[in-house]
Amino acid sequence: MIPRWFYPLGLIAVCLALVPFAVVAKLRATKSPDPRPQIIWDMDQGYAYQSQQPNALFRDGRAMRPEVNGTVARGELRADDHMYRGKVNGEFATTFPPGIEVNRAMLARGKERYEVFCLPCHGYTGAGDGIVSQRADALQQGTWIPPISYHSDELRNRPAGHIFNTISNGIRTMPAYGLQVKVEDRWAIVAYIRALQRSQNATIDDVPANLRDKLR
């Protein structure tokens, strides 16, 4: 005869067998701040430092070392004043540097970079109504000074080199973007700002005659 306890015990065992699944289902459905379990350590950790990893050897804890003061890396001399500082003979250049070709692709690149780095404050047209600017104004918090519009005679007459310098090094409360935007991209943004300025200060005569009807 099968003892009476056999079937209840079997039922309990089956129920217990479901517990691990319930635990795992819970793990899968929730987030955890704890480091993930590494069940097999098959070469998960290497000995080489990777980008932006810490290294306790240095006081600032960075494995990636900043440039040593007073040194210039190969290819980073940047002696061309026009290209790298927007100046010709000490004055802001009114033209683009010889190595920079202004064309449709460059303007498209300028628009794309403008919309990443400039748009948040300056807005789509350069009126100074970007979303960060609007929000800062609404918060009345800190010392926010809204950006000025690109569409004044003063700014329209500003030399290209001046605008390049402003992007590179900042102006008044605008921070420097030389760190985030490459040199060629800064010139592309200058070209796009010029296009914005023309677009916001145009008359119907600037539109080719065969396209004028489309604007009405």
């Binding site: 932006q52 948040p120 800062a136 918060l139 800190g142 921070p175 985030q180």
Partner: peptide
């Protein structure tokens, strides 16, 4: 900003936070 150029989409330096937070929520 390194994502289209480099292997690593780097965590920005504090400088980038301060672009805005030098004047907002100071």
């Amino acid at each position: 900003y390194t994502v289209t150029e480099g292997a690593h989409a780097s965590i920005p330096p504090t400088q980038v936070c301060m672009n805005c937070h030098a004047s907002i929520w100071t």
